[in-house]
Amino acid sequence: MKTTSPTDAATETTATRAYELLRRDILFGTFRPGSRLSIDGLRERYKIGPIPLREALNRLAAELLIKQSDQRGFFVRDVSVTEIRQLGDTRCWVNEIMVRESFKNESPEWEKELIVAAHHLFRTPRTPSDSTTINPDWEARHRHFHMVLVADCPSEWLQKFNADLFDYTDFYRNQYLSAKPAIARDIHAEHQALFEAALSRDTAALTEALNAHVRQTVQTLISVLAASSG
C-alpha cells in the first residue's frame, strides 16, 4: 500500500494553493493576455517555491488558461475574436441541453436555492462606486446564480464543462473591464429575465434568455477587443 509522506502532502497542499491563487488572478485579469509567467516573478508574488508553482502552471496549461513553450516558458493565453465567438456558441449549445435536463430532473430544493441565489445577486453591487473593478462578492454570487439555474442537470460532465466555460468567459471579460463597451447593457434586467424564466419552468424561455445573455456578452467583448486593437 502506497503511503504519502508529510513532505509530499505539504507540497501537494502548497501546489493546490498556488493553483488557486494563480487561477484566480488569471481569471480576474491581473495578468494580461500573452504576458509571461516567470517562476521567479511568481515566487516573489506568492511566496511559494518553484516545485509547487510548476505543478500549478502545468495544471493551468491543461485547462487552456495558459500556454507552455518548451523554449520560453509559460504565458497567459492570448485573446481573439474567433475564440470569443466559439466560446459563446459552445455555451449556447450546452445551455440548450442543461436547461432541458435540469427541468426534467428538478429537485424539491431547487426553487428555494434559486430564490436565495437571485436575492443575494440582486442585492450586491456589481462595481464599487469609486472603481471600475468588479466587486468580488458580485463575481462569486453571479457565478453561483448561473450554476443554480441548471443545477439539477444530472450529468457531472456537463456541470464541470459548463463551469469551465463560465470561467473562460470571465477570463475574457475581466481582461477589458476598464474599457467602456459600445453596447449598452442592463445587466440587472438580463438576470431578472433569467430568474423569471427559470421560475416559470419554461424551457424555451430560459434557453432563449440564457443564450441572448451569452450573445450580448460575446458582442460586448468583441466590440471592446476591436476598439482596443484599433
Results as ranks from 00 to 15, higher is better:
157 W>F: 04
188 H>Y: 05
66 I>Q: 09
131 S>V: 05
43 R>A: 00
64 L>N: 15
22 L>I: 11
213 H>P: 09
102 S>M: 04
135 N>H: 05
164 D>S: 06
155 S>I: 02
191 H>L: 04
135 N>M: 01
46 Y>L: 00
45 R>Y: 00
94 V>F: 01
183 I>T: 10
121 L>K: 12
92 C>M: 11
130 D>Y: 00
22 L>Y: 10
8 D>M: 08
56 A>K: 14
51 I>F: 07
23 R>C: 13
67 K>F: 02
13 T>V: 05
43 R>D: 00
220 T>E: 08
98 M>F: 02
74 F>T: 05
185 R>M: 00
96 E>Y: 02
201 R>F: 01
206 L>P: 06
220 T>G: 01
129 S>Y: 01
202 D>T: 05
196 E>K: 11
45 R>Q: 06
121 L>H: 11
141 R>Q: 14
207 T>M: 04
193 A>H: 12
180 K>N: 12
100 R>N: 13
189 A>Q: 12
135 N>A: 02
79 V>T: 08
112 K>I: 07
30 T>D: 03
90 T>V: 01
53 L>H: 12
165 L>E: 05
124 T>K: 06
210 L>P: 09
60 L>E: 11
110 W>E: 10
68 Q>M: 02
213 H>V: 03
152 D>P: 06
94 V>Y: 01
63 E>K: 15
211 N>E: 12
198 A>E: 05
3 T>S: 14
89 D>P: 09
94 V>C: 03
140 A>S: 13
56 A>H: 13
134 I>E: 08
178 S>M: 05
205 A>L: 11
151 A>Q: 09
188 H>G: 06
16 T>Y: 11
209 A>V: 10
221 L>D: 14
218 V>Q: 07
212 A>H: 08
176 Y>A: 14
38 S>R: 13
219 Q>G: 00
44 E>N: 02
217 T>H: 09
127 T>Q: 11
92 C>R: 13
119 H>T: 09
43 R>I: 01
195 F>A: 04
138 W>A: 03
9 A>Y: 03
146 H>M: 13
210 L>F: 03
121 L>P: 10
159 Q>E: 02
112 K>M: 07
93 W>Q: 14
86 Q>S: 12
216 Q>G: 10
158 L>S: 03
134 I>K: 06
95 N>Y: 07
227 A>W: 11
115 I>T: 04
176 Y>F: 15
115 I>E: 04
66 I>W: 03
173 R>F: 14
168 Y>S: 07
14 T>A: 13
215 R>W: 02
123 R>G: 07
102 S>C: 05
37 L>R: 13
107 S>K: 14
207 T>W: 00
77 R>M: 01
99 V>Y: 02
